[in-house]
Every structure is written in C-alpha cells, then in structure tokens.
Nucleic acid binder design. Structure first.
Lengths: 239, 239
DNA sequence: CTTGCTGTGTACGCTAACGCACGGAAACGA
DNA sequence: TCGTTTCCGTGCGTTAGCGTACACAGCAAG
C-alpha cells in the first residue's frame, strides 16, 4: 500500500502537465486521514486544500439543531477546499473524512497563485467545481423526491465509485447522519438490500455483493451525476 | 420604467471598473423576458449568458417523471449561464423565468474571453458562483429537514429580495413546481400565512404584508444563504 | 467470565405530505 | 351573457418517515 502512494493517484494532480506538477510537487504534504476527522469547519479559514488519493471526504451542512446533511462527496477525482480558489475563503459547511486514507495537501496560497495564472490547473479546478455543483443540485432533488431506499443506493454507489475495494467501513448511524435521516430508517433500508443479497452487512462493514443490482434500484440521480462527472473530468492524462 | 433601465442595475456589471464595463457594454443586448420563458435547457449548449436587472430566473432540475425542483434562484445580483465560464458548456438543469422583466445578454465567447484574462470579472463571477453553491447546498438541507411552511417562507423571502416591489406574480401551481411539492400543499401553507396576515393572496398575485413576520417563521436556511450572499458580493461599486 | 459499550433489529403510535377527487369562484372570450 | 378556463380551497384515505423505546448480539477491557 505505502509503496503505491503517489500524489498523482489524485486525478486532478494526474491531469497536470509534467512541468506544472513538478512545480507543485515539492509543496505537497502527505497526510493520513482518519475516519471522522474534520478538514474544514463551517466558517473557518482554511490553510490548505486537500487532494484525496484513496480516501473519501463528505461535505456536510450542519444545522442549529445538530442535524446534518451531506451535500456532496469528494474522492480521488477532486479537491477539498474550493472556496480558496473561488475567492470566498470560507464556506458555511464542514468537510469530514468518511473513509480513512491518504490525501496530499497544499498551502492555500500556493494553490491560489497557480490558479490565478489562468493555468491548466484553473481549467481543471473549474470543471471539477461544475461537476460538484451538479452533485449538490442532484442531492437537493433526491432529498425532495426519492425514497430512503433509493437514496441509500445512490449513496452506496457514489461511495463505491471512490473506493478501490467493494468494502466500506461505515456504521448505519453515520450513514444516517450523512443522509440526514434516522438511524432506524437506514437499518430498514439496508435490511432490504441485504435480503435481496445486494450487500452484506456486519457491524460497521458493508460489502457490496451485487453492484448491478444496486444500479437497478437506484434513482436517476446517480446516473445523472455520474455522467456529468465523466463528461467534465475526462481529460487526457498528459505525458 | 423604461427610462430607468440600465445594464448596471445588475450588480455584477455594476461592480466592474468603468473601462472593463465599457468594453463589454456595446455587446450587451437587452432582452425582455416573460414569465415561464426558458433561457437554458438541460444539456443544451448556450449561446449567451444573461445578466438580470429586474427579473428573477429559477434554476430547476427536471426529472424523468416531469417533477421538478428549484435548486437556486438568480436575480440582479447574479448571472445565468455559469457553465460557460466554468468550462462545462452545458448543465443538466433548466433556467426558467420566474418573474418577468428585463435582462442583458452577452455572447458566451465574449464573456469567456474577458473571464480568461483573470480580470475583475473573473473575480466577481467566481465569488458569485460560490454564493450560488451555498444556495444550492442550503436548498438540499431545507428539502431534507424543514416543513413546507418554512420552505414557503424561505422561497418568498428569496424572491422578495430580488424584486423591487412587495408584490409577486406567481400561481400556487407554479410555486409548487418550484418547491417540488403538491399544489394543495402550497394552498394550505399559503393559507396559514394569509390567516396570520403575513401575505395576501389573490389569483396569482401575492402581496407581502409583513416581512418581519415571514422572517420570524422561516428556517435558518434563509439567513444562512442571505449572509453568505452579503459576504461574498459586497464589493465596492467603482467610480 | 463478567461488565459495559457499540452496532443492529424491531415495534408502535404519530405526523407531514401525498394522490385523488371535487367544488366553487374569478377571469376570459365569444 | 354564457360557457370555458384558470386558480384556489377542501376533504379523505394512504404512506413514508419520524420519535421513542427497548432488546439483543458482538466485541473489548478488566
């Protein structure tokens, strides 16, 4: 595992031309992220942006009551901390590690400098941000119109797409927090999937047994987001 | 009314330095938009971006079933067509005129050229886009956690903020489409507000009688979005 | 082996919102 | 003036998801 680690497992970094990448590379700092760790707090100034390589980060809106909702999820295809280059510096949302792993971080100012050169990096980051916007919009739609069963499928598939394995370390309680629903609701929906032999569940470990089965149950929100990510982030990897 | 019309009623255009504005001004084309008109269709390439001056445009996600949900609303503070400068060219959502009025449009390529100069315009548009992202995220949260009553208040206030008057031309049917709920649900919630003498409602015309009353009933989603817009879009108007 | 904690299953009443159906009233057009 | 359409109000059975409560099984620490 350790041997394989390379910042360019992150797709954005991988898509940079060699010279631009090498300008940034010395400043990339490896960080090992643990489940539940918070990378960004609501309204707090960030010092770094994070490029995940094999972890997943959830963007959450937390409300006054403490209830929360995941509005998007970021993996190796993306970056955490878009407000740094978008110009707002802060956001009213949190970023929490949903699946432990590694990321590379970069000082905000360095990223911003590179971004402001109207470089390849700017091009990549803006397209990525547009994909992220689509994910958020579709989350809003899904929250409004689709059943918990469908939302759970969507969530599993989105997570799965960002993991190297088909096993996912996550309690029902945490999933409930992400989806902004009751834990018992997740138990019930997950139970259905288990009975259908699409997943197998055991004390905080989910194994996905039948991915096509999940795709058959999921609402349109998942394919809409997936297609948009594919479309917007399918640049060639340069030499 | 006609006399007052000036592209610089749009806040983004107004915030441009004089020389940059005058470079764009000859290419700004006035368009009068009618209720229900569609500016952008899902997946369709756009030729123009639109700067509203006194109209409101809704960004909608439409699903296979025909059900829709508003994910954000744009008025004189913003621009319609962010995917043109974000780089994706298209989006999977629609943009529909929610309140008739005027906008100024600009050929996409001209905007993109100006944007790519890393100009003031780029700065403004990116900050605006971040604000828009917040609005979408909060819409997702609101859809998940808050009652229709609260959501209606939020919607009314967001619309009100983008109108010069306290009167709003909009049937309950249309509001229901925006919020992604049943028409009857809107009837009921609006009825409550009417009984409380916060609004008065009559065949597609809503007058807001007691704005503080609405603000007292609305969920936190409204102030969160409002504050973020104020924070991100409070640049000085140049000489 | 016991104790305690964490994660999961289940049950029950409750409520907001849904789908559907209908009625009436205001505007509109001929 | 009369019919038609648009818009709003209301009622009713249904349902998904909520809040609460509790039972139980794995797992870890003592």
């Amino acid at each position: 595992m350790t041997l394989q680690l390379d910042p360019r497992q992150n797709h954005l970094l991988a898509a940079l031309p060699r010279d631009k990448y090498e300008r940034l590379a010395p400043h990339l700092e490896r960080v090992d992220l643990t489940l539940g760790e918070s990378l960004v707090e609501s309204g707090m100034m960030m010092r770094h942006v994070y490029f995940p390589t094999d972890c997943i980060v959830s963007l959450l809106c937390v409300m006054e009551t403490g209830d929360s909702t995941e509005i998007a999820v970021v993996g190796a295809e993306g970056i955490v901390g878009i407000s740094l280059f978008m110009g707002g510096e802060t956001t009213p949302s949190r970023a929490v590690v949903q699946s432990a792993g590694t990321a590379y971080r970069l000082k905000g100012q360095l990223l911003k400098d590179e971004f402001d050169r109207a470089s390849t990096l700017q091009f990549l980051l803006l397209r990525y941000t547009q994909a992220l916007i689509t994910q958020m919009a579709q989350t809003a739609v899904c929250n409004r119109h689709h059943s918990l069963d469908q939302q759970l499928c969507r969530w599993l598939l989105l997570s799965l797409d960002r993991l190297p394995t088909n096993e996912l370390v996550m309690t029902q309680e945490l999933i409930a927090n992400m989806l902004g629903v009751r834990r018992e609701g997740v138990t019930e929906s997950a139970g259905k999937l288990q009975k259908a032999e699409l997943i197998s569940y055991h004390r905080g470990r989910i194994r996905v047994l039948d991915r096509p089965g999940l795709e058959a149950r999921v609402c349109e929100c998942y394919p809409v987001v997936k297609k948009e990510y594919d479309r917007l982030l399918s640049y060639h990897r340069p030499g």
